[in-house]
C-alpha cells in the first residue's frame, strides 16, 4: 500500500491502516527518539506521544514531501518537548563552556562502530551537547534554527556543537584504539 493510500485510510480511522503505518515507521522512529533520551523507556514514551500526534494530526499532512520525513519531524519536536517537560532532562540542560574538557577538533575519523554503538555514544554526551549534536549533525537543522528551537543564540549552538563533536570523536578514537588493542591481543 502506498503512503498516500495509507494516510487516507488512517484518516478514515481504519485501525488496520493505523497499525500498518505504525509497523512501517515505529522501529526507525524509535531510533530517532533513542538518540535524544537517556533510556529506552523514555524513548518509548516519546515514540508513543509522537505516534498519537501523528494519528491525531494526520489531516495536517499535505502529501508534500515524504511521509517518513513528516513523521520524523513530529518525533523530533515531541522529543524536544519531552526533554523540556521532564525535570530529569531539563535540569541537566546546561550549556556551560567547558573548553578545557572538550577541546574543539577538526578531524574526521572513520567510524567503524556499529550504528547502535554510535547511538549509545551520542546518548552519553551531556544533555545539551546531545540535543544540539542530534539536531545539527543528524537532522540537519542550522544553528539559527536550533537557537530558535532551544531558546539559545546561534553562537551558543555552534560552540556546543563543536564541543559535542570533539568529545564524540575522542570517544570514537578511543574505542577504535581499544578495538585494535583487543585485536592484537587476540592474535
Amino acid at each position: 500500500m502506498s503512503d498516500q493510500q495509507l494516510v487516507k485510510d488512517c484518516l478514515r480511522g481504519k485501525p488496520e491502516a493505523q497499525r500498518q503505518l505504525y509497523e512501517q515507521y515505529a522501529e526507525s522512529m524509535l531510533g530517532v527518539c533513542y538518540r535524544y533520551t537517556k533510556s529506552l523507556r523514555d524513548a518509548e514514551d516519546v515514540l508513543q506521544d509522537g505516534f498519537v500526534k501523528v494519528f491525531l494530526g494526520m489531516h495536517q499532512y499535505k502529501f508534500e514531501g515524504q511521509l517518513g520525513a513528516w513523521i520524523r519531524r513530529i518525533m523530533v519536536n515531541t522529543a524536544l518537548n519531552f526533554l523540556k517537560r521532564n525535570r530529569k532532562y531539563r535540569d541537566e540542560m546546561y550549556f556551560t563552556e567547558q573548553e578545557s574538557l572538550h577541546p574543539v577538533t577538526d578531524t574526521n575519523p572513520e567510524i567503524s562502530l556499529q550504528a547502535k554503538d554510535l547511538a549509545n555514544m551520542i546518548r552519553q554526551l551531556p544533555q545539551g551537547y546531545q540535543t544540539v549534536f542530534n539536531l545539527h549533525a543528524i537532522e540537519g537543522y542550522s544553528h539559527v534554527e536550533i537557537g530558535e528551537l532551544l531558546g539559545i543564540s546561534d553562537g551558543t549552538s555552534r560552540s556546543q556543537y563543536a564541543r559535542a563533536r570533539a568529545l564524540l570523536i575522542s570517544w570514537i578514537e578511543k574505542d577504535s584504539q581499544e578495538t585494535k588493542t583487543k585485536k592484537y591481543a587476540g592474535k
Partner: peptide, 30 residues
C-alpha cells in the same frame, strides 16, 4: 548543516539505526 565526512558518516549510520519497540507501545498508542 553537516559539512564534512564525519557528519555524513554519522548521518548514514543513524539512518540505519533501528530499535524495535515493545508491544505495549502500540497498545498505549491505540
Amino acid at each position: 548543516m553537516p559539512e564534512n565526512e564525519f557528519e555524513k558518516q554519522v548521518q548514514q549510520k543513524m539512518e540505519e539505526f533501528r530499535v524495535r519497540p515493545s508491544a505495549e507501545v502500540w497498545t498505549a498508542v491505540e
